[in-house]
Deep mutational scan, measured.
Amino acid sequence: AEKTGIVNVSSSLNVREGASTSSKVIGSLSGNTKVTIVGEEGAFYKIEYKGSHGYVAKEYIKDIKDE
């Protein structure tokens, strides 16, 4: 049951290796980017990222929809 969301930041949002603010940053997404959410862990969504997965803070994702 995948969902999509939109990155809701003015600059960019860090994509992390794990569901923690201390996890390594593996990339970033600019505002209004559409993401595919494959799961959630605590305050983070697990998303599809560059052929693999990454984690982003839930508070910066809006317009969550079921695909």
Rank of each mutant, 00 (worst) to 15 (best):
E2M: 12
I64G: 12
K34H: 08
T21W: 10
G18A: 08
K46R: 09
S20E: 11
A57I: 11
V56L: 05
Y49M: 03
G5S: 03
E17V: 10
A43Y: 08
V56P: 00
I61V: 11
H53G: 07
K3R: 13
G54C: 03
A43R: 15
S52P: 01
V25L: 13
D63S: 09
L13W: 02
K58F: 03
K50N: 13
E67C: 05
Y60N: 08
S30K: 09
K58H: 03
G27Q: 02
N32C: 06
S11R: 12
Y60D: 05
A19Y: 05
V35A: 02
L13V: 11
E40H: 09
A1C: 06
I61K: 01
E41R: 09
D63L: 09
D66V: 12
K34M: 11
Y60Q: 05
K65R: 15
I6Y: 13
K34W: 12
S28V: 12
E48I: 14
V38I: 13
V25W: 08
V7T: 09
Y45I: 04
V7A: 04
T21C: 05
E59K: 11
K24L: 07
V25T: 13
I37Q: 00
T33H: 10
S30E: 09
I47P: 00
K46L: 07
A1D: 08
S12E: 14
H53N: 09
A57Y: 12
S12R: 12
N8D: 14
E17T: 08
S20P: 02
E67G: 12
K58R: 13
S10G: 11
D63N: 09
T4D: 05
E2C: 06
V38E: 04
S28N: 12
A57S: 04
S52G: 13
K3E: 03
S11P: 15
S20T: 14
K3D: 03
V15E: 00
G39Q: 05
V35S: 00
G5V: 03
A43G: 12
I64M: 06
N32W: 08
T33Q: 07
S28K: 14
K24S: 06
K58Y: 03
E41Y: 09
E40Y: 07
V15W: 02
G39V: 03
T36M: 09
V35K: 00
V35M: 02
D66K: 01
V15Q: 00
L13M: 04
A43V: 07
K58W: 03
K50S: 12
S22T: 13
N14A: 13
V38P: 00
G27F: 13
S52Y: 10
V56I: 13
L29Q: 02
L13E: 03
K46I: 13
V38Y: 11
Y60C: 05
G54W: 01
S11E: 11
H53W: 15
I64K: 05
E67R: 01
D63P: 15
S52N: 11
I26K: 04
I26F: 03
V56Q: 00
K62S: 10
N32G: 08
V7S: 04
I26H: 02
K65I: 12
V35I: 08
K46P: 00
A19Q: 04
E59S: 10
E48K: 14
L29C: 04
S22D: 11
G54T: 01
A1Q: 09
E48N: 08
G27T: 03
F44H: 04
I26T: 04
S28W: 15
G5Y: 04
V25A: 06
N14K: 15
K62V: 10
Y55H: 02
G27A: 05
T36G: 06
H53E: 09
N32H: 05
